[in-house]
Design a protein around this nucleic acid. Structure first.
Lengths: 202, 202
DNA sequence: AACGTTCATTGAACTAGGACAAGAACCTCA
DNA sequence: TGAGGTTCTTGTCCTAGTTCAATGAACGTT
C-alpha cells in the first residue's frame, strides 16, 4: 500500500497513518486533505468549545492531551473522553447538524492539533471521495467504544471499571488529574481515592 | 425532491422516506438498494443474534418491535435499544469488522424486517454511492443519542431518567414489559416498580 | 520566600438503589 | 377449565457510593 506524505513530513505522518488504516488514497487526494487542515498550537487550559456554542471543528491530536466533558445541573463534570496523540476530538453531532453543543472541550496540556473546519468539511467530502468512508469507520469505532462504556457503567462496579481503565489507558494517570479520571468513571474524586487506598492494602 | 418508489409501494415507502432524509438518490440507485433488501417476517421471541456470533445483517423495522441487550456476569440483562417502526437495529461494529458480537437481538413482537446482509454491504457501497453518506449520518445520530444516554445514566437519578424515557418514548410502555424498561434505565425491575408507586402517590 | 490554587486523602453520617423473598395478577395454551 | 409461566408489586434488610467536612501536599506565580 502506497503511503506518500509531503508538506512537512513529521507533522503529517501520524494523521496519514491514521486515515490510511481505513482506505487507500491517491496522492493528490491526500494532498488536498492535508491542505485543508489547519495546524493549531494551543496552550494548556485553552477552551476549544463551550456548551451552547456550535462546534465548528474536528481536531486530530498530534501532540498533547485534550478532554471533553459535560456539566450536570449541580455543576459537576462528567468526562466524556481523554484524547491524546492519534485521537480525534469534536462534537460530531453539533458539527454535522449545526446544533448548539452540550459539551466542553479543553486542553489539559500544551497541544498541537490538526483541525478540519466545519465550512470545509462538505467540500472535502466532494473532493476526496474516500473521506466519507474514513469518517464512517471512525464513527463506527467510536460507537462501539461508547457502547462498551455504557455497558460497563451500567453493569460493573466502580472498582472493576477502574481496573479496566488502567489496563486500557495505563499512561493516562500520569498525564491527567485523578478527579478527572473519577468523573470519567462516573464516581466522585473522594470515592476513587478510597478505592485506591483499598487496592494498595490488598 | 423526487421520491420515487416502486417494487411494492407500501412495503418500501417507509424505508425510502428514512434514507431520503439523508440524501437525494437517483431512481436506478434506489432500485438497486431496494433489490438488495431481504424481507423477513419473524415471529415474537425469535433470536436474531446471540452473543458470540458475528452479526451478518442490518435490519430496518417495518413493523413490530425488536430489542438488543447485553448480559452481565450475573446473567442480568442490560437493554441497549428498543427498535420499533422506522428504526434500524444491528451490531454495527461486529457487522463491519467481522468480530464476534457481545449483544443479543430478539423480537418482542411479530415483526417485518428489511435486512441488508453483510456479504452485500460492500457491493452496495460501490453501486449506490450515496449510501456511504446515509450510513455515516445514521451513525452520527446514533452516536449522539448514545452520548446523551451515557450522560443521563451517569448524571441523573433513576426517577428523572424514567421521566425522560416516558417523554421520549410515550408509547413504549404499552408494548414492552416493564422489567425490560428497567434494564434499559439501568435499575432493577423492583426499584422501577417502587418509583412508579411513588409517582402515583404524588 | 510566601502566597493562593489546585489536588489528593481520610473520616463520619447519610441515601439511592440492590438483593432476596413472597404473594398477586396476569396471559397462554392444552 | 386449569396449570404453569410471566409479570408486577411490596416489604425488609443491606451496601456501594455520596456529601460534607477538615487536613495536607504539591504547584505556579509574583
Amino acid at each position: 500500500m502506497p503511503n506518500f506524505v509531503t508538506m512537512n513530513e513529521e507533522r503529517y505522518a501520524r494523521i496519514i497513518g491514521n486515515i490510511s488504516r481505513c482506505t487507500a488514497m491517491p496522492y493528490e487526494q491526500q494532498q488536498k486533505f492535508l491542505a485543508a487542515l489547519e495546524v493549531k498550537q494551543v496552550p494548556k487550559k485553552t477552551q476549544l468549545l463551550r456548551a451552547g456554542e456550535v462546534c465548528d471543528f474536528e481536531a486530530y491530536v498530534n501532540k498533547g492531551c485534550i478532554r471533553s466533558y459535560f456539566l450536570d445541573e449541580h455543576g459537576h463534570e462528567v468526562t466524556l473522553q481523554f484524547a491524546t496523540e492519534d485521537w480525534w476530538v469534536s462534537d460530531v453531532v453539533s458539527m454535522a447538524e449545526g446544533k448548539p453543543s452540550r459539551i466542553f472541550i479543553e486542553a489539559l496540556e500544551d497541544s498541537e492539533l490538526l483541525c478540519i473546519h466545519r465550512d470545509k468539511k462538505e467540500d472535502l467530502y466532494r473532493d476526496v471521495p474516500g473521506l466519507e468512508r474514513v469518517f464512517r469507520m471512525m464513527l463506527q469505532r467510536n460507537l462501539g467504544a461508547l457502547q462498551d462504556r455504557l455497558f460497563a457503567t451500567m453493569a460493573w462496579p466502580a472498582e472493576e471499571r477502574y481496573e479496566a481503565f488502567l489496563k486500557r489507558f495505563p499512561q493516562l494517570p500520569n498525564r491527567v488529574p485523578q478527579h478527572m479520571i473519577a468523573s470519567y468513571l462516573g464516581i466522585t474524586a473522594e470515592f476513587l481515592s478510597k478505592l485506591r487506598a483499598r487496592r494498595v492494602a490488598k
